[in-house]
Amino acid sequence: MRVALLAMLGLFLGALSGAALGIGAGLAWVEIAQTTSFEGYSGTLVFFTFLPLGAAIGGIGGSLLFGMLAMRDDAIAIERKPVAERARGHGR
């Protein structure tokens, strides 16, 4: 359950950050390639091409990253036994 919840959090955060990076990459592309702005073509290119691609890539990457971190017990200190129990040999 913890893995699924952290993967969902990673999906959400990754999609948000990926969309922001996609907008930045799209604006850079419009400036570098000198895309025409006739009738809003450059804005349409950024918001209908780069933003969804960035959100999709960021969402997949974020969910994989957070899911992998959640599967590793030593990376996240959740549900650990108290120190006194581990010292007596009852931990794990």
Rank of each mutant, 00 (worst) to 15 (best):
G59H: 04
R86E: 15
A4N: 06
Y41T: 15
M1A: 12
Q34L: 08
L69F: 11
G10L: 03
E85S: 10
T35M: 13
A75V: 14
L16H: 00
D74M: 02
P82D: 02
V83R: 10
L69I: 14
M71G: 14
E85F: 09
L13G: 13
G67D: 06
I57V: 15
A28M: 04
A20E: 11
G54V: 08
E79Q: 08
D74E: 14
A7Y: 00
G40N: 12
L51G: 06
R2G: 09
L51W: 15
P52D: 10
G59F: 07
T35D: 04
I57D: 06
A28K: 04
L9K: 04
R2D: 11
A84T: 05
E85N: 08
E39D: 15
L16Q: 06
A33M: 09
A77Q: 13
S63M: 15
G58D: 11
D74G: 03
I60C: 11
S37H: 08
F38C: 03
F12Q: 02
A20H: 05
A25I: 10
F50N: 03
A19K: 00
Q34M: 05
M68W: 09
W29D: 06
I32N: 05
Y41E: 13
A33K: 09
A20R: 08
K81D: 13
V46S: 01
R88L: 07
F12W: 12
L5D: 02
G54F: 05
F50V: 05
A70G: 08
T36H: 05
S37N: 14
R2K: 14
V30H: 01
G24Y: 08
G40C: 05
A77G: 07
G91K: 01
F48A: 14
L65H: 09
G58T: 07
R92D: 14
A33N: 10
G89A: 01
A77P: 10
L11E: 07
A84W: 12
A84Y: 07
G10F: 02
L53W: 11
L13Y: 04
G54D: 12
